[in-house]
Every structure is written in structure tokens, then in C-alpha cells.
Amino acid sequence: MLRLLNFLFHYRAFLTFLSLEIFCAWLWVGNSQYQNTIFFNTSNRMVAEAVGTTHRISEYVSLRKTNEELSEENAQLRTLLLQLNRVEASSLPGVDSLVRYEFVSARVINNSVARFKNFITIDRGEDAGIRPGMAVISTAGAVGKVKSVSAHFSVITSLLNIDEQVSSVISRTGNFATTQWDGTDPRTAQLLYVPRHVKLLAGDTIVTSGYNAVFPEGILIGTVKEARLNKEALFYEVRVELAQDFSSLYYVRIVRSELKSELDSLERVTIGKQP
């Protein structure tokens, strides 16, 4: 016993080091893999307010651009309204899918594009009905997925996160694929698992598939910038130019899917998917 204590005392620095490192690694791996509602991130009210203050300064610099984007969206909505007035609502295509989703708009108060795992903080939280796992979109296209939520703020896993995969579809051909960021250029992502037989062209639009019930169907992700097919490769190597420029993201919309829990429980019963 004494020898054991002696041993522990002798190596106390190394043992402290080891236990701290293991604890940190556990936090890091656990934190980046699971959606959760934890206190130790920028959804924490105090942190969010501090972070939001610094963001407001940089936001002020780009007011002009934000203004342009908002007026553009305004114009789009006006044309949509005109069309709606003309056509009877029930005959509109896609109305069925519209009813399944509700939108909450929020302001971005913290954002990054240069890291391998980028996150976005917004100024709406649980009180606005936001829950982990919900999809986040902007006027331009898909943005990400809600990761953790506090009373008034939420943290979103950006599409620019090497762990984030989005089920996508090539709208011209109807083939399914997966969009994933490779960690380098914040303007482009990779499209994985596009099989050889597909005739892929530069300029093809990539939209969300709606297979996982997170994103609504048909949200724009980007356009194919360059598609390469190596000899003997099973899949294309595709670079997709993202529709949303993440370095100037100021307003987002959170998609509340009314049917997500229903779909999940149905899948659990039929396929046996674990919660």
C-alpha cells in the first residue's frame, strides 16, 4: 500500500496530465459527435451576449450587403405573393410539403468559416420552439442543423463542418448523393457517391433530398462546379459551389418539421432504427 502511494506521489504530475488529457479528449469527441443541450458553448446566455457584441461590429461594416440581400428576398416574396393571388392555393405544386414545415427566422450572432468544424450561433432558442436536430436554411440555400439549444440562443452545426453530411439529389437526373465539406475552401463542398453511369455536367443544381426528414425536400445546396471521373473509380469526384456564401450570413430560418417525430417513430417500428 505504501509503495503504491509512493508510486502515485512520485508520478503525480504525469498522472494529473494523463487524467486531464483523457478528460479533454472525452469532452471533445463527445461534444462533436452528439447533438445535445449543454451549458458549455455559445448558446450560454452570457457567452452569447459577449460574442454577439463583437459580431455586431463586423455586421455594421457589411450593412450594405445585408440590405441588398434583404431587399432581394423582399422582391422574391412579392412575386410569390402575386402568383399566389392569381392561382388558387390548392392547385399549387408543393403546397403539401409546405404545410409540413413551419419557419422561424433568426439573426446570426456568431459564425466562422475557417475552422474544420464551424458552428453558427443564433439569437433564438427554446422559447421560439427550436429543438436540436432541426434544419436551418437561408434565402440562398441550406445552412445546417441545430446542435444545441438554450432558452434564448442556439448553436447550429454549419454545412462547413467536416462531420456534417447532407442527403442530396441531383435535380436534373434525380440521382441521390451526399454532400460533405472537405475542410478546405469555404465556398465549395464535395458531392460523394455519384455513380459512374450518371451523366453529370458542370452547372447541375444539387438540392436536399428530404430523405432524413431534417431538411425539407428541394432546398438548394449549390451547383456543380467541376466533375471528374477517374479511370476505375467507382464514383465521381465532384466539387459543388455552395449556394450560400457562409462568410456573409446574417439571417437564417429554422425549419420546424411538424412530422419529424411521427416519421422517426414509424421508422423505428418498421426498420428497427435505434433512437
Partner: peptide, 13 residues
């Protein structure tokens, strides 16, 4: 630092 960077454990490690 991690709390502000949304990267719990990374900077600490």
C-alpha cells in the same frame, strides 16, 4: 476559450 469557440475540450487538451 473552448466555451467561446464551441469546441469543448479541444483548446484545453
Amino acid at each position: 476559450v473552448d466555451v467561446f469557440y464551441d469546441s469543448l475540450g479541444l483548446h484545453a487538451m
